[in-house]
Design a protein around this nucleic acid. Structure first.
Length: 580
RNA sequence: AGGGGAGUCGCCAAGUGGUAAGGCACCGGAUUUUGAUUCCGGUAUGCGUAGGUUCGAUCCCUUCCUCCCCUGCCA
């Protein structure tokens, strides 16, 4: 039987491969071990051909790039198999959760391009059912109320190499357990006075099976159920049951839950065998977490960065939160592309920040609107161009889109160019502007540097040049090797541009050697006043621009206002110039 | 009386008995009014290690090594 399954699965795989090669339209994701499991289940008809996954965040913080991987995996898998993916809030611990987080999570999942309108669930909606099931476990002698203190329980749990010892309350009669559990629920006991535990095996080599706690007393308002409950179910007990209630077929989670799977299965098996839950049960499958170089990802550290003011909030453009990435100028498409390129496996994944940046460039090159902007301006005076006149110039809004229209700007006597596009004594291979040499002002004319003027500090203050009237862009005249961007003083506008760099200056600030905060990059944010071409005056947040030869920029969704624009640099363009 | 996982190119990652896909990075070359993009071409005699089985091993068996996770009334 297994060989039949295997052979057929191979055929399907071959099919998928052919589609990927031939298919111009629908994009097939690459194979991975999870898809193999799903393929096998499809073949055996285990779930009647259905694929139902879920993304189950606890609303206790903001989503980051690591969550994006999980979101793309779960929603992507459902989409590819014509199934559905639930968004389920795992809201079982009211002391840590808040609607603010819930709203942010929903917003970000939607932003990433995934829909959950008809598939929004809450673990808290199952509190009633979960409580009934707990009584059921008690009645069957599979759960008991433990009245030991937290310290005692910890001490009796044993260690990694020594078995635990049974609680003195382990053999309480079912009736008494039921009564106590009811009292716990009715608020008759203080936090910590009692706890409900599954009765499994205190000597199990898997510590998760040493009578795990499944209900604790918490006299706390829950953001959805208010004060209806004062006992709250715990993760291991809640998650598997929630999955089963929703008929999740494949429950994907990260590697650290591997040791919890036997518990996941234990709970469900016992509920299925008495008909409390339907078969087949969902299957938990673990994959490796995403780690990114030059950043930290743990909720605790992210929170610390925000609270100590090391960054400006959860949506600081340097943060790897989804809110931060969006504000920085990352597109949803680029994050989906990144997640797909990263892939899924059980091996530890250490991905370079450069890969994220590369995905953004790849996504934006095709669609970003083009404009010229001079970030570090130096003045150029065209001495043979009369004052008070101008020459209209234009350029495609997007060179990859012939129907995208054109933008206009004016060439005039005074323009600004990038300081780094001029060298007084050019190194070998430099083909921009230098004394006596020519360069093209992109979309404009060829100019020649005649002489320069310096300020008291010895910096170039003004470049005096002449232009060749016969070389206007598009007229088919002669050309030169270099072309640089520029903005004329006549119609250019000024704006703040924020230049971001990685937040940390070491690959793994989390390595454990010293405080990660000592590795903060002091130059992660630099603000400049730039000259922009006039078409940028109407730029809006959520629009991505390529500042030609510079990088991709987007108006800051918080600080940018009409007339007082603020742009964020999401990423630079690749710079292939290496002086040699 | 510990248990559970992972090791395939610089970074990811397919393949799982028939002689190492792909992406990113990198290196050439072509085109280019963005030193971008695009396009062509190149890049693992090798799959942590040492043995074994086999006509044939990344894949099966055994040894060893390295790394990660688990002792919350967090998820």
């Amino acid at each position: 039987m297994s060989s039949v399954t295997k052979g057929a699965a191979t055929e399907i795989k071959t099919d998928a491969k052919r589609t990927a090669v031939e298919g111009k339209g629908e994009h097939k994701s690459p194979s991975n071990f999870i898809r193999q499991i799903v393929d096998a289940d499809q073949l055996s008809g285990k779930h009647d051909g259905k694929v139902i996954t879920r993304f189950p965040p606890e609303p206790n913080g903001y989503l980051h790039i690591g969550h994006a991987k999980s979101i793309c995996l779960n929603f992507g898998l459902a989409k590819d198999y014509v199934g559905v993916c639930h968004l389920r809030f795992d809201d079982t611990n009211p002391v840590k959760e808040d609607v603010e987080y819930e709203e942010s999570i929903k917003e970000m999942v939607e932003w990433l391009g995934f829909s959950f309108e008809k598939n929004l669930y809450y673990a808290s909606d199952y509190f009633g059912k979960l409580y009934e099931f707990a009584q059921h476990f008690i009645e069957r002698g599979l759960a008991y109320v433990d009245s030991q203190s937290a310290d005692e329980i910890r001490a009796n749990r044993g260690t990694l190499i020594e078995p635990g010892t049974n609680s003195p309350f382990r053999d309480r009669a079912a009736e008494e357990n039921l009564r106590l559990f009811d009292e716990m629920k009715r608020g008759l006991h203080a936090d910590g006075a009692h706890i409900l535990r599954l009765k499994i095996d205190m000597a199990s080599p898997n510590i998760n099976l040493r009578d795990p706690a499944i209900y604790r007393i918490r006299h706390t308002e829950h953001h959805r159920t208010g004060s209806a409950w004062c006992v709250y179910p715990m993760y291991d007990y809640t998650h598997c049951i929630s999955d089963a209630i929703e008929r999740i077929t494949h429950s994907l989670c990260t590697l650290e839950f591997e040791a919890h799977r036997p518990l996941y299965d234990w709970v469900l098996e016992r509920l299925v065998e008495t008909g409390k839950l339907p078969a087949p049960s969902p299957q938990q499958i673990e994959f490796s977490r995403l780690n990114l170089s030059y950043t930290v990802m743990s909720k605790r550290k992210l929170l610390e960065l925000v609270e100590t003011g090391l960054v400006n909030g959860w949506d600081d453009p340097r943060m790897m939160t989804l809110a931060g990435l969006r504000r920085r100028g990352f597109t949803a498409g680029s994050i989906r592309l990144f997640a797909e390129r990263a892939g899924v496996s059980k091996a530890h994944q250490w991905i370079d920040m450069a890969d994220l940046e590369r995905a953004l460039r790849d996504d934006l090159d095709a669609t970003a609107l083009r404009a010229m902007a001079v970030l570090d301006p130096v003045r150029v005076v065209i001495e043979n161009y009369p004052e008070g006149q101008f020459e209209p110039c234009s350029a495609p809004v997007n060179p990859h889109d012939e129907n995208g229209g054109r933008r206009s700007f004016k060439f005039a006597r005074e323009v600004f160019i990038e300081r780094e596009d001029f060298m007084e004594t050019p190194v070998k291979g430099f083909f921009r502007l230098a004394p006596g040499t020519e360069v093209r002002l992109r979309h404009g004319f060829i100019i020649k540097c005649e002489r320069i003027e310096k300020d008291d500090a010895g910096n170039v203050a003004t470049i005096y040049a002449t232009y060749d009237p016969a070389t206007k862009s598009g007229t088919g005249g002669r050309n030169v090797k270099g072309a640089i961007h520029w903005v004329s003083k006549l119609d250019g506008i000024q704006a703040e541009v924020r230049l971001y760099d990685r937040l940390f200056n070491v690959e793994n600030p989390d390595s454990g050697e010293g405080d990660y905060r000592t590795y903060l990059n002091p130059h992660s944010l630099k603000s400049v006043t730039a000259w922009l071409e006039p078409s940028l005056a109407s730029a809006k947040a959520d629009e991505s621009y390529q500042f030609e030869r510079n990088g991709y920029f987007t108006p800051d969704r918080v600080d940018s206002k009409p007339g007082a624009l603020v742009f964020n640099r999401a990423v630079t363009l690749k710079d292939g110039w290496k002086p040699s």
